[in-house]
Computed example of a mutant assay.
Amino acid sequence: MTTRDKLLGLTVAVLWGLNFLAIRAGLNHFPPFFFAALRFLVIAVPVVLFVPQPKVPLKWLLLYGFGFGFLQFAFLFSAMHIGMPTGLASLVLQSSAPFTVILGALLLREHVGRRQWIGIGVAIGGMVLIGWDRAVDPTGILPTRSGASLLPVVLTLLAGLGWAFGNLGSRLAQAQRPMQLMLWMTVVPPLPMLAVSAVVEGPGTGWAALGTSFSGSGWPALAGLAFIVGPATLVGTGIWTYLMGRYSAGTVAPFSLLVPVVGIGASWLVLHENPSVVSLIGAAVVIGGCAWGFRKAAGPAVATIGTPPLVRPLA
């Protein structure tokens, strides 16, 4: 990989890591389901008008859009809305990598080597450590946090599982133009997400928040939305697609492991989030397990891991 392309990979990691700050800014103003619908709707409208529909089976486009777009962001935004720390969310969402490999092995009969299984086991151990830290006190004896402290972690894991199902849909679609497929994926989530928003949050709640977002106090949410749509999704995914077209998945995918490093660091600097030592150890275990387990892997099972974290992320 050339120096320029390495810098491009680092740029994507920075954009996707900072994307979690943009999500937090949006969720400080918008209800979560409506905000998830809005971030896709802004892209979907011009896509339907100006981008040709990809020549792929509709069922795989729907699986991609429902898993990656609807399930991932419904769970992720809900988790962050009820208390999932921003930096920790960027890390736990990386559970999509082992989930993708496991689903590929179970549903598509893809081969998974021993090294990958060990890496998956180590990464899962790190996730368990983070969940344990969120559920109990530092001594590990008395529950000092409410059950809701563990719930955001579980919801974020479900978001990673949804992303993994989306990865399978993306892989099975076998699009000749991956960027075109990604853009059309954004057409799937808005309507079901708006329906859920109307039922759960109220039919007028999100639209009222959109109206007040143009006031002085609402500009951070609009800035967050603009960052998610522009730099994080269109620019970041465009660069990622370019890199995936030039290099193997095993060469490009490790850059995505830098996303939680940026996310946790940016959340510490900007939001003053201070993750516990146990959570940081868990984060290192997760990243280390993924990096070691997938470093020399190749083939279809790993190719899905390189799919952008948020067609982001997202994250």
Rank of each mutant, 00 (worst) to 15 (best):
4 R>L: 13
8 L>A: 10
9 G>T: 11
11 T>A: 13
11 T>F: 05
12 V>C: 02
17 G>K: 03
19 N>K: 01
22 A>L: 10
27 L>R: 11
39 R>G: 05
41 L>N: 04
43 I>G: 05
44 A>P: 03
44 A>K: 13
46 P>S: 09
48 V>Y: 03
50 F>G: 01
52 P>Y: 13
52 P>A: 12
61 L>T: 02
64 Y>V: 01
64 Y>A: 04
66 F>G: 02
68 F>L: 13
73 F>S: 10
77 F>T: 01
77 F>C: 01
78 S>K: 13
78 S>P: 00
79 A>V: 10
80 M>P: 09
82 I>K: 10
86 T>S: 14
93 L>P: 00
94 Q>F: 06
94 Q>H: 12
96 S>A: 15
97 A>L: 14
100 T>D: 03
104 G>L: 11
106 L>F: 08
107 L>Y: 09
107 L>P: 03
109 R>M: 06
121 G>Y: 04
122 V>N: 06
124 I>E: 01
130 I>G: 02
132 W>R: 00
133 D>V: 02
137 D>A: 11
141 I>A: 13
143 P>Y: 08
143 P>H: 09
146 S>N: 09
150 L>W: 02
152 P>G: 07
154 V>A: 14
155 L>Y: 12
156 T>W: 01
157 L>I: 15
158 L>R: 10
163 W>I: 08
165 F>H: 02
166 G>P: 07
168 L>N: 04
173 A>W: 04
178 P>W: 03
178 P>C: 05
178 P>S: 04
183 L>S: 01
184 W>E: 00
185 M>N: 14
191 L>F: 14
200 V>W: 15
200 V>G: 01
201 E>K: 10
205 T>Q: 15
205 T>Y: 05
207 W>R: 03
219 W>H: 09
222 L>K: 03
223 A>Y: 09
224 G>C: 10
224 G>S: 12
228 I>M: 13
236 G>S: 05
238 G>V: 11
238 G>A: 05
244 M>C: 10
250 G>L: 03
259 V>Y: 02
266 A>S: 15
267 S>R: 03
267 S>M: 05
269 L>E: 06
274 N>D: 10
274 N>V: 12
282 G>D: 04
282 G>E: 02
282 G>Y: 08
290 C>N: 14
294 F>K: 07
295 R>F: 13
297 A>F: 09
298 A>V: 06
299 G>D: 08
300 P>L: 10
304 T>C: 01
305 I>P: 01
305 I>T: 15
305 I>A: 05
305 I>S: 03
310 L>G: 15
313 P>F: 14
